[in-house]
Amino acid sequence: MEDNTVLEDLELVYEKPHTLSDTAFHYCPGCGHGVAHRLIMEVVEEMGIEEQTIGVAPVGCSVFAYHYMMVDMQEAAHGRACAVATGIRRLLPEKYVFTYQGDGDLAAIGTAETIHTVNRGENIAIFFINNAIYGMTGGQMAPTTLCHQITSTSPYGREVEAMGHPLKMTDLVAHLPGAYYVTRQAVHTPNAVRKCKKAIRNAFEYQKLHKGTSFVEIVSNCPSGWRVNPADSIKWLEDNMLPMYPLGDLKVPGKN
């Protein structure tokens, strides 16, 4: 990098969005939450809608999402983000409203709110981070925990006879007429990140057109909860999560 002539001719090709605060994320090393936060804020910045956007944070690791996303935000009770978002969006029908929820929040305690919000076709974007574990409380079994996956409350592995099956919420909501756009994405590779950002952009664009609910699942990693290092968590995600939660669109306007 001693070649100063080259440095002078460099142009900026990527910087983090100014809608993302400079505060250091409290997430564990390698955690996908940071990428998901950044992508949402990149889209908000690129669309120029930060003055019209209201986010709803969940309970879980991303409970402090409002420390990082520099838009107006509300902190919902565990599982109630979709109801809170409904209240906001009904009062402010021309604004952009999104929820950011983990698997415990959205697919266990908040199942009813999620299903009914999508079924009403609320004009909101739901971002669903699925890492198959309760991260914040220390790695307990989640509704999306895989069969035989070891967690601190399924120490011998998730036995479906006793603990039920992994819940594929995204497949479930795709069947609802209120869902306009349903997709499953990930953030573990550069390509996955590019696709995920496109999906997030779609979700906001459809909201602008008052098309109904957009639902974007983001399959993510939890190195601490999975008890692996960040690099291995990417491999674990590919080997175990993706077969159960395959990436791709589940409902695309005009195609279903």
Partner: peptide
Amino acid sequence: VVLQAESEVAAINMIYGAAGAGG
């Protein structure tokens, strides 16, 4: 606006959101 929620749990959280939005 008026909305029949799916439960009282949802209703009070819609109130939270809507009140937070200044309504």
